[in-house]
């Protein structure tokens, strides 16, 4: 394992979209006590995630389970006295984890749905029929051509999502 200074990891995070504010954290715990998930499970504590990140514990943060347990409710971000954009920091960490190959299965499914149909919830034959029965207009298809070009431009399509069945 290569030696890494704690701040290297923090700098990498602040350099990413969403991660800019992480170094403001002074560990007051407001986020943890405001978090509906922390109240429910010991698997997640936003304050601890930030602390590990600022101490340079790259593997604990990016390979661990905690960052995937944020419910994106933004209550922490709303109440943080240092205006750390906690929920956005978690997004930044997830982005980094995914680029590093730690991709929970559900996100592979989301990515596949997006890449194939431009929607996370594909239309079914049953629903098409039901819509017609209720007099709802047929759903206009997403412009998947444009979408593919955008995903190519951001590099989204290059992310190595795991094939179904693979672990």
């Amino acid at each position: 394992m290569t030696e890494e200074k704690p701040l290297d990891f923090a700098r990498e995070i602040t350099g990413r979209l969403g991660g800019e504010t992480i170094t403001r954290c002074y560990q007051c715990g407001t986020c943890a006590s405001a978090c509906p998930v922390t109240k429910t499970t010991e698997r997640y504590n936003p304050r601890q995630v930030i602390r590990l990140a600022l101490l340079g514990q790259r593997n604990d943060v990016l390979k661990g389970d905690a960052i995937w347990l944020c419910a994106s409710c933004y209550n922490c971000q709303e109440r943080c006295p240092q205006k750390v954009e906690v929920a956005d920091v978690i997004y930044a960490l997830r982005n980094m984890a995914i680029r590093g190959g730690n991709i929970p299965a559900i996100y592979t499914e989301f990515a596949a749905a997006l890449m194939n149909e431009g929607r996370l919830a594909p239309m079914s034959k049953f629903l098409e029929k039901k819509r017609a029965e209720y007099g709802l207009p047929p759903l206009k298809p997403a412009n998947t051509e444009a979408l593919k070009k955008i995903l190519a431009a951001t590099g989204f399509d290059k992310i190595m999502f795991r094939k179904e069945g693979a672990t």
């Binding site: 979209l17 995914i98 989301f110 412009n143």
Partner: peptide
């Protein structure tokens, strides 16, 4: 009704890549 609209890119996609 909008023509060609795609997914809005909600939290699941934000989790994968904020820029996308």
């Amino acid at each position: 009704d909008m023509e060609g609209a795609t997914c809005c890119a909600p939290p699941p996609i934000q989790s994968i890549d904020l820029e996308t």
